[in-house]
Design a protein around this nucleic acid. Structure first.
Lengths: 191, 191
DNA sequence: GTCTATAGCCGGATAGAC
DNA sequence: GTCTATCCGGCTATAGAC
């Protein structure tokens, strides 16, 4: 049946992403992956077409979600702080959904072979939307007059690396995390 | 002369760190490194002992600087906000000194073979000192009552990834960067 | 101190039996 | 759909000529 084939493929993708997070794409061998799945390396090829395709689908699926998401956020008729909070919430949601994929997105994008340009285009578009929110927020007086790129990258870096510690904080509810992280990133930590 | 041998070795280390930043340790071959240096792969071994040692020395040298630095900072008799600013300044200084080494420290530590445990010990010690500054700051009322780990990791992640964009911002002076980043991370971005 | 040649091993992927 | 066997190329590192 198609369903069982699909879930077998997805299981391989899921385990691959975990291994990619631990050692990076280049250091994970098909023999490693096969052992983690519980088969021999040759058997993987009944379900997948190549190692490269695992990486490519994993990364691009998430990158598309991010770029589509922020394009919806920027179009809304709300203030910049609200948009920033929605961006933070989107990062938290997507990271909770797929922390291992987030690791691949962050660390292994340069190993994309055929679709590197497409990935870079998605990332550039994402950063452009994010930057526009910051610029608008400074113009409207909602945000401080700090250097745009510093503000942009300091927030974005924290969000992009959430996968490093979110899995450990299973006890923290998603809504609490959004609230606390919004305070930390937007209002600062000083009382 | 010893001096020229040393600088040849250091040149190889420097170029290796640049390649490690671009593709990651595992994806950089000794042939890649040799080509970037301008010799054949076999010739590298007159100056270095192994690929692994390049990684190991690069990472541990920086990790030791961080851990030694924060141990001096925490011992000072100043308030928590001042200590936080000094930690930020240390990250900026060490990143400007060696941005490519910072990339290896962040992304390739898991490929350390013999000295992984030592690295992890240094990192744990560093995070422990940083956490203590946060806890003290909350106790003294200087810092908000947000979740300690959220505050810790959101600041630490931004600092650890400075190497990603600091090289591009060559026009920004170090003191300005320290000032602006301190504002962004500590006081927040909302006006 | 750099080179060519190569040892010895491991990589992704395929062929074909079951 | 999984297996064994294998292709073929690339990997780190060494040997030894120059």
């Amino acid at each position: 049946m198609k369903k069982s084939t699909l879930s077998r493929k997805q299981e391989i993708y899921r385990i691959a992403a975990q291994l990619f997070k631990e050692k990076g794409y280049s250091a994970v061998t098909m023999r490693d992956l096969a052992a983690a799945v519980g088969v021999k390396a040759a058997s993987l090829y009944n379900h997948i077409t190549s190692k490269q395709q695992i990486l490519s689908e994993t990364i691009l699926h998430i990158a598309e979600q991010f770029t589509e998401g922020i394009e919806i956020i920027v179009q809304q008729d709300v203030d910049a702080i609200t948009k920033l909070k929605e961006v933070i919430a989107q990062h938290i949601s997507l990271t909770i959904d797929n922390p291992y994929g987030m690791a691949a997105l962050n660390n292994d994008w340069m190993h994309l072979e055929g679709k590197l340009d497409y990935y870079l285009e998605l990332r550039t578009r994402y950063e452009k939307r994010f930057r526009q929110i910051v610029i608008d927020g400074k113009k409207s007086g909602e945000l401080k007059e700090v250097h745009t790129e510093i503000l942009l990258y300091s927030i974005l870096t924290t969000l992009r690396n959430l996968y490093l510690w979110i899995p450990k904080k299973g006890e923290l509810k998603k809504e609490e995390l959004i609230e606390e992280l919004s305070i930390t990133l937007i209002q600062g930590v000083e009382k």
